[in-house]
Computed example of a mutant assay.
Amino acid sequence: MKVQLRYFASLRETLGKGAESVDTQATTLGALRAELVARGGAYAEALALGKSVRVALNQTMSEESAVVSEGAEVGFFPPVTGG
């Protein structure tokens, strides 16, 4: 299935892009993240499973167990800090 990915803040900088469309077999956000990490390189660095990364599904912050469907928009966000 095809999904639209969006990367924000430092993730966008690390990956060198703000968005991309991908074909995936993943059925959950966690599985999608694991597929991206498996690409290696900047993806493995930015989205490593030990890193704190927030994920939104169709513009709603979601758990990694959320189900991904055809045409979904998935956003990846680094942790937010304030001061």
Rank of each mutant, 00 (worst) to 15 (best):
L5H: 06
F8N: 10
K17P: 03
G82W: 00
G30I: 07
R12Y: 07
A42C: 10
V67E: 15
V37Y: 09
G41E: 02
F77R: 06
V74H: 03
A34Y: 11
L15K: 06
T27E: 11
A46N: 00
G50I: 01
E20N: 09
K2W: 11
T81P: 00
A34N: 12
L29E: 05
G16P: 05
D23E: 13
Q59E: 14
L47F: 03
A31T: 05
A72S: 15
R33C: 07
L11N: 10
M61W: 13
A34I: 09
G50Q: 13
E13L: 01
L57D: 00
Y43H: 02
G18R: 11
A26N: 00
P78G: 01
E73W: 12
E20I: 05
R54F: 15
R39A: 06
Y43N: 06
A72T: 01
G30Y: 07
A46F: 00
V74M: 04
G30A: 03
A34M: 08
Q25Y: 10
F77K: 04
L49V: 15
A44I: 00
Q4T: 14
S21N: 13
A66N: 05
P79R: 03
Y43G: 08
A46W: 00
V67N: 12
L36F: 09
A72K: 08
E73V: 15
R54G: 11
P78H: 01
S10P: 09
L29S: 06
L11Q: 11
E13H: 06
G30E: 07
G41W: 05
G30N: 05
A66T: 05
A38T: 07
Q59N: 14
T24F: 08
A34K: 13
Q25P: 10
F76P: 01
G41P: 04
S65V: 13
G50E: 15
Q59G: 10
V80L: 13
K2G: 05
D23R: 12
F77E: 06
S52R: 15
R12I: 02
T28S: 11
A56R: 04
K2A: 12
G18T: 09
E64Q: 12
L15A: 06
Y7R: 08
V37I: 15
R54P: 01
S21K: 14
S62I: 10
R39E: 04
L11I: 15
A72M: 09
L57F: 05
V22C: 03
A48Q: 10
G75V: 02
D23Y: 10
L32N: 03
L47A: 03
E63Q: 13
T14Y: 08
L29A: 04
L29Y: 05
S21P: 06
G16K: 01
